[in-house]
């Protein structure tokens, strides 16, 4: 086990836990401390599911914070989320679910030994993920410009044409900084997970190009797939709670 592996994985942060891709005795991917590839694969899969459990629990803290703020200040949350762009949110949801589909097809392709097909599916997944981030960037820049930001950065310009009033809300008078604190925490943390996902998929694509994966050995592709589906899963709950719910 050369040191390159250690540094390489540490740099990636939490990598896919199927780390069985070095070159011990026959078959090439089997690590020395496992008796056979069946045991190694099921170990890697279980490790990944447990890691997904920790991700779920981490995001559950954010969802609880959202529900607490919502139960303490219901009208404020309902009014504040009018300022979110439903259309951009919907587009992002479609893009992310589509990338989830292409990721699943990529795993299927590498399961059935079709390395070229896997490459294209992975490429489409990465492109969708990047579109997601671009749309997110557009949303965030719109918010920065309107001043609907968390905490003391909140200074929203109000133009209520009906009441013929104009002025700046800040957190002393009727500001919605609490909601946007939660909004940026949730979507920000989710965005970081999307970026890490993009990094992982690029790593998988690179390994796939070097011919590491086949129907004999595709655990890393499957584990990165599981991670990506979890990221999509969290967005499936984030989107209605933040953007839609009246």
């Amino acid at each position: 086990m050369s040191t390159a592996h250690v540094g390489h994985e540490a740099a990636l942060g939490h990598d896919a836990h199927g780390d069985g891709h070095d070159h011990a005795a026959h078959p090439p991917h089997l690590r020395h401390h496992f008796d056979n590839s069946g045991q190694q694969e099921s170990a890697a899969k279980l490790g990944m599911w447990i890691f997904l459990a920790t991700e779920l629990l981490m995001f559950s803290g954010l969802f609880l914070a959202y529900f607490v703020v919502r139960s303490n200040y219901p009208e404020m949350v309902l009014e504040a989320h009018e300022r979110l762009d439903k259309i951009l949110g919907a587009i992002n949801t479609v893009v992310l679910i589509f990338s989830s589909l292409t990721m699943a097809l990529a795993v299927r392709a590498s399961q059935t030994n079709q390395r070229v097909q896997a490459r294209w599916y992975l490429l489409v997944t990465i492109l969708c993920a990047m579109t997601f981030m671009v749309v997110k960037y557009m949303e965030y820049s719109a918010k920065i410009e309107h001043g609907t930001l968390p905490g003391r950065f909140y200074a929203e310009h109000v133009q209520d044409l009906a009441a013929g009033v104009e002025g700046t809300l800040d957190r002393w008078y009727g500001g919605y900084q609490l909601f946007f604190g939660i909004y940026f925490a949730m979507t920000g943390l989710h965005g970081i997970h999307v970026l890490v996902g993009i990094g992982l998929i690029i790593w998988i694509m690179w390994k796939n190009e070097k011919g590491a994966y086949s129907s004999e050995y595709y655990t890393p592709v499957e584990n990165v797939g599981l991670y990506w589906h979890l990221v999509d899963l969290i967005w499936i709950f984030l989107f209605p709670l933040l953007y839609l719910v009246k």
Binding site: V68, L149, P150, G151, R171, G181, A185
Partner: peptide
């Protein structure tokens, strides 16, 4: 860093 206010009673937190 951002004073989001979830835990800070001064801004409505608990």
């Amino acid at each position: 860093v951002f004073q989001i206010g979830i835990f800070n009673p001064a801004w409505g937190g608990d």
